[in-house]
Design a protein around this nucleic acid. Structure first.
Lengths: 141, 141
DNA sequence: GAGGAATTCGAGAAATATATATAAATCAGA
DNA sequence: TCTGATTTATATATATTTCTCGAATTCCTC
């Protein structure tokens, strides 16, 4: 299951994408509307900023704005950034590959084969869904 | 990513399935061959026993044995038992459904729609792969 | 049938890591 | 000078992983 951080990140970004034009959205607006703990949200948005998903503006009229068009920000990218690899085991992760400690032969490992299929399926869905793929309604997850 | 517990569970069960006939396999044999921490493995196997996946026999010549044919024990069942729901968010879990705290309208939630697709894909793979689907080689994950 | 050896069972403890959340102090822009 | 992001620190809770110790159970041998 995803951690709270990832879910908050998704909700915050969707909110920004919807509110979004040129004017940045202040944290208080996001936290207020989506009912997210404000200070916790700050940390998450900072991570997203460092990851190049959003950009921030200080001072009056400041806040957060998508760093790219919503259509170019995928669910997969967001989850990888906040949560970590989509893969269920390190040896099938593309973004954070790591050989298993006691693996005898990766190419013949049954577990790996299954997990690789799962990863590829998951990735193809999440990487092909962007913040632009949203309906009018409000969200929560 | 799966926790260590789940990976150990999978490896242990595959080992049992392979060694397996009528005679139970002692923990020490599993821990030794698969290089798993023995006492930690005990706890995991106990969970699997309570979940009805394996059965245990005490005393000399004791150990663990699959409670059902390997073909009737799926990866999905094992992971759900040890790790928890396959779903990435509670509101799309079949085994442990829970409505999201601040959800406005589940049927129109974009996040939910995507996560549901991912869950269904993942579940169909993991639930249709059993301990019987293994090659001759030894495994590690 | 009594004793010893192998083995699971169960309760804790403990060290470590991660997740979640809050608070205070600081910095930069309008 | 005000607003809001940034940074740093702290608190709390929960999960993970591993280890220790002491049982209870069953088989085997004498």
């Amino acid at each position: 299951m995803l951690t709270q951080r990832s879910r908050y990140a998704l909700r915050a970004l969707i909110f920004i994408a919807r509110s979004g034009g040129i004017a940045p959205v202040p944290i208080s607006a996001i936290a207020g509307d989506q009912k997210l703990p404000r200070k916790f949200l700050e940390i998450i948005l900072l991570d997203l900023k460092n990851g190049g998903v959003v950009e921030s503006f200080r001072g009056k009229m400041g806040g957060y704005r998508l760093a790219r068009p919503a259509s170019q920000i995928s669910f997969g990218e967001i989850i990888r950034m906040i949560e970590g690899p989509l893969a269920l085991v390190p040896c099938v992760s593309v973004s954070a590959y790591q050989r298993c400690a006691d693996c005898f032969e990766e190419t013949t490992c049954v577990i790996r084969k299954v997990m690789l299929t799962v990863r590829d399926n998951t990735a193809s869905i999440l990487d092909n869904t962007s913040l632009a793929d949203l309906s009018i309604e409000r969200e929560a997850a």
